[in-house]
Simulated assay, not measured.
Amino acid sequence: MKLFEKDGAKKTAAGEACKSFDDAKEEISKSLEEKKEELLAKITLIFDQCSPEIKAVVRQPTEAAIKKCPAAVAKLVDELTEIEFPGAKVAGEAVGKFGAALVTGPVVFLLEKISALLPPEQAPAVTEEDKKEEEASPVSEKQEETTEITKEEEAPPSSEPAPPADEEKKEDEAAETTEDAPSADAAPAEEEPTKEKLPENPEKEEEEEDKKKVKEEEAPSA
């Protein structure tokens, strides 16, 4: 029971501190307007030294963001108190007593004022190398697409698989053997001129020769 009573009393006191701060907001805003040129350089220096997490909280201060990193936020409020930022001292005392999570109202107010004074967030600078990469990327992508299309056109899909290399060699050897072998029709034509013409009637020719001999014998006697 005592623990719950202490928590309840702490929350009540934190609420009163937030209400007291709200009453002083108008005066804080006026004082900040008068000193903003003087404080701008100091605020910028503090902001530059902050972690990326705290920078994000300063740019977009919300109760949820403050509750995620209350210790870092308390440290930032202390640094604002040191440069005499309007309202930082009152907010810092409340944060020291109750914690940043219970007095988010005053903290959000301060961070919003800081964010308004800081220059707008700039996009990361683009270097010459980044520009070259951006310019080269579309070109390389187009070249790859063109190469792929050309390959597809040059190599149309074949409906039949190509024969193995061994079968091609066998077909070539068979063709060469067929060309070298003499044809059956050509062989007799080459042998015909070598045949001797045989006499059709041997007996008749012998009689004619005998007659020639008789005539040759009778011729001298005449």
Score class of each variant (00 low, 15 high):
1 M>S: 13
1 M>E: 10
3 L>R: 12
4 F>S: 15
5 E>S: 13
6 K>F: 07
6 K>E: 15
7 D>G: 13
9 A>S: 10
9 A>E: 10
10 K>L: 11
11 K>E: 06
12 T>M: 11
13 A>G: 08
13 A>E: 13
14 A>I: 01
15 G>W: 15
17 A>Y: 14
19 K>A: 10
22 D>H: 06
23 D>Q: 14
23 D>L: 09
25 K>Q: 05
26 E>K: 09
33 E>V: 07
33 E>F: 10
40 L>P: 05
42 K>V: 02
42 K>Y: 04
43 I>E: 00
44 T>C: 06
45 L>Q: 09
47 F>W: 09
48 D>K: 15
48 D>Q: 15
49 Q>N: 14
50 C>N: 12
52 P>T: 06
53 E>Q: 07
54 I>K: 10
54 I>Q: 03
55 K>S: 04
56 A>R: 15
58 V>D: 06
59 R>K: 13
59 R>Y: 05
60 Q>F: 11
63 E>W: 03
65 A>G: 03
67 K>F: 07
70 P>F: 03
71 A>K: 09
73 V>C: 03
73 V>W: 05
73 V>K: 02
74 A>G: 08
75 K>L: 07
76 L>K: 02
76 L>A: 01
77 V>M: 03
79 E>D: 13
79 E>L: 13
81 T>R: 02
82 E>G: 09
82 E>D: 11
83 I>E: 00
84 E>L: 03
85 F>S: 00
87 G>I: 00
89 K>P: 03
90 V>D: 09
90 V>I: 13
91 A>M: 06
96 G>W: 04
97 K>G: 12
98 F>G: 03
98 F>T: 05
101 A>V: 13
102 L>D: 02
107 V>N: 03
109 F>D: 02
110 L>A: 02
111 L>K: 01
113 K>Y: 01
114 I>T: 00
116 A>V: 01
120 P>H: 02
120 P>C: 11
122 Q>H: 01
124 P>F: 00
125 A>D: 09
128 E>W: 07
128 E>V: 11
128 E>L: 12
129 E>G: 06
129 E>F: 04
130 D>G: 02
130 D>I: 04
131 K>E: 14
131 K>Y: 08
134 E>K: 13
137 S>G: 06
138 P>I: 02
139 V>E: 07
139 V>A: 14
139 V>W: 07
141 E>W: 07
144 E>H: 12
145 E>H: 07
145 E>S: 07
149 I>S: 13
151 K>L: 13
152 E>Q: 07
152 E>P: 10
153 E>Y: 12
156 P>N: 01
157 P>D: 11
159 S>L: 15
162 A>N: 06
167 E>Q: 11
167 E>T: 08
169 K>A: 12
169 K>C: 11
171 E>N: 05
174 A>R: 13
177 T>H: 10
178 T>C: 01
178 T>M: 11
180 D>W: 06
180 D>L: 09
181 A>Q: 04
182 P>I: 03
182 P>R: 04
183 S>V: 05
183 S>Q: 06
183 S>E: 08
185 D>W: 06
188 P>I: 05
189 A>G: 09
190 E>T: 05
192 E>H: 04
195 K>V: 07
201 N>V: 14
202 P>I: 08
202 P>F: 01
203 E>R: 10
207 E>M: 15
208 E>V: 12
209 E>W: 11
210 D>F: 12
216 E>L: 14
216 E>H: 12
218 E>H: 08
219 A>T: 05
221 S>A: 15
221 S>K: 15
221 S>P: 15
221 S>H: 15
221 S>C: 15
